[in-house]
Design a protein around this nucleic acid. Structure first.
Lengths: 131, 131, 131, 131
DNA sequence: GTGGTCTAGACCACC
DNA sequence: GTGGTCTAGACCACG
């Protein structure tokens, strides 16, 4: 699948999983009715403890992003796309603002900061798809 | 002083303090020989436990950014500016890359992502100094 | 286990713990991949506060002697044996030199000093293993 | 004078001063009736705070090693030589035992340990007087 | 006043 | 169960 986790980026692993599920829904990589990977499968894939995945899924259920279907697994709810698209910019914006604020306060000039952002963006896009 | 902490940004408080000290040194807001605020004073100012500040300062000492002058306080070392400038882009870049990567993978297009960054940047610079 | 601390020997407890871990690694009593005792267990065994053990372990991690395995414990790193053997004589030599220097300056003659050392050595070896 | 302090050897500075005064008395470098250096002079010489020297002297007075003579200074008491000679081996032996014990437990063999001691002894005696 | 060390005990993330 | 973080508050050494 499309998930990857970074244990050093400050965010809790279960939180990273939850965010990535939401982003996948926002991106229509996951659509209403789709089944998310099983706890055990995703845990193996991410080299993470199943409890951690279970916790992420549990919280996504309580946010109505996922819903359990007995004996089948967890599937994306009909309302999830709207909800996830709405949250996307908020979730990303908060983290982004935090790091930009720190950078700003570190004394980088506007130009240096924009250059740093551009460098990182081009590194990212060099190897990635461009939608 | 110039520090502020955000308990919700994922980074441990002691780490935020350490980074901000380094950034202040990189920005020449703190220069070799300057005394950093006392453990107790900074703790009070940040509404944080003195041990948390002490831990940040201890790690800065072990990184040779600060040096203790017995009974007097902790002083920025002569080598600190170089060291902190060298680390600045690495420290910021790592966090920045992490959030950009997440944003990228969330399905935002290049344009949407750049727009998000620009929005945040302009919000920041609206109220801040411009070096 | 093999640790014991002496609160009256001048060294901070966390430092004594750190040194003894390194010495155990140098002595191959702890090998790469071995888990060190848990913070809580060692704290109980040494009748010491868990935070004190945690501090020792944290510093050993920052020296690359230990590495954390999430939810499992702390493990001796592959590079630790070399590193610890290299440090052993330095760490011991420094303390030894300090006390010998003091003895020397106290006016003991060579012979008295050597005799004092020999006495202590034989007391130690009377009850200890001989490798 | 004959004192020197090592802020890194674990012993408190005031303790190092006290021990060295006692050792000087044991060694007859200081004799009953001799005045020890004034607090301010010794403090300047050792680059140490006068309060620290004062504390060392205060404790030596309470141990009857020094006695104050109004308007004159502190002088070595008649009983001091006996007392200091008696304490010498105890004080040194305790520190020595502590470091030898640590070395012993670090897995050094008898031979390696004796060699380490001999090395340090010869380094010391290379540059020092031999009584 | 300063920092350094230690204790006691809480809560969190993860296995 | 594990380690990590933080709080609250004590005592010590030193200026």
């Amino acid at each position: 699948m499309f998930f990857n986790i970074d244990p050093t980026n400050g965010l809790a692993i279960y939180d990273q999983i939850g965010r990535q599920v939401k982003f996948a829904v926002a991106d229509e990589a996951l659509c209403p009715g789709d089944l998310v990977p099983s706890v055990r499968e995703l845990a193996k894939q991410l080299a993470v403890n199943p409890n951690t995945v279970a916790r992420a899924y549990r919280e996504l259920q309580s946010e109505q992003v996922l819903a359990g279907v007995r004996g089948t697994g967890l599937q994306v709810t009909p309302g999830a796309p709207q909800l996830c698209r709405d949250q996307r910019e908020t979730l990303l914006g908060h983290r982004l603002r935090s790091v930009l604020l720190e950078a700003r306060r570190s004394g980088l000039s506007d130009d240096e900061l924009r250059k740093l952002v551009d460098d990182e963006l081009s590194h990212l896009f060099a190897g990635g798809k461009s939608k």
